[in-house]
Nucleic acid binder design. Structure first.
Lengths: 125, 125
DNA sequence: CGAACTGTTATATTTAATATATAACAGTAT
DNA sequence: ATACTGTTATATATTAAATATAACAGTTCG
């Protein structure tokens, strides 16, 4: 479990932690049943408050990705890859919706957008 | 000048105002040299503080879209459509970058994304 | 059992961004 | 002059995020 957070990011720390854990679950870096670092250990590693880590874990549990048991810790639930993929697909759709709205207002064509997509997809393989 | 703001939006009111004015400038609803509502008038209309409107106007001026003169008011600068378009293009690129990153991690293909784009472009013409 | 881990909860504080209220001041137009 | 403009300063309120600290509770293991 290798979490990297940015203190200066506008994105809240607990959100950054959530994202990285989801990604680790998806990429199988974190396997089913695997125990996550305890809130205090991770807080210590990241030099942040354990309450911030707890917030991330609480939300990950509410979203069905991990399970926390008092006294024991938090572990990765039988992962629902489809769930994760769907969640991200929704995020992508939201971004696309923003793009389409902006494009229509500011006279950017469908082809221009598609070209950008294609170019950026090829980059940094 | 017809500004609509949402009190419940997570987007700051001054940002909403900025966006709507930029859009109005782009669509020529607000023409070159046209006087914007005074900060107090708009604040009154929207039932918000004039300081919030001032913040929006100040930033619009810093970004080169309007000009404010003490005692007179704020008016639309000779508009630089290209500037606006470029600004929005950057916003779009940022969104695309997010999309591409997510897609690569979560196994969503270029074609899937392009299809979504095409579908959403056709919708709500 | 007891020590050393886990997580939980409550309280209080800090910081930054947003938004507000109010009052006083300054420029412009008529 | 008056009535608009914008400007500035001060103070306050709200919210989200993050923190610090202390006390409490469950689990594990020697």
């Amino acid at each position: 479990m290798n979490i990297i957070i940015s203190n200066s990011s506008s994105e809240p720390i607990y959100e950054q932690i959530k994202k990285e854990i989801k990604q680790a679950i998806y990429s199988n870096e974190l396997k089913e049943e695997e125990i996550l670092p305890s809130v205090r250990v991770m807080a210590n590693d990241l030099k942040i408050s354990f309450l911030t880590v707890k917030k991330a874990y609480d939300e990950l549990e509410a979203e069905g990705f991990i399970k926390t048991v008092q006294g024991k810790g938090s572990y990765v639930l039988p992962k629902n890859l489809e769930l994760l993929r769907e969640e991200k697909l929704k995020e992508i759709e939201k971004n696309i919706s923003t793009i389409v709205k902006l494009s229509k207002i500011y006279g950017i064509t469908e082809e221009e957008v598609v070209n950008l997509i294609r170019i950026m997809f090829e980059e940094d393989l």
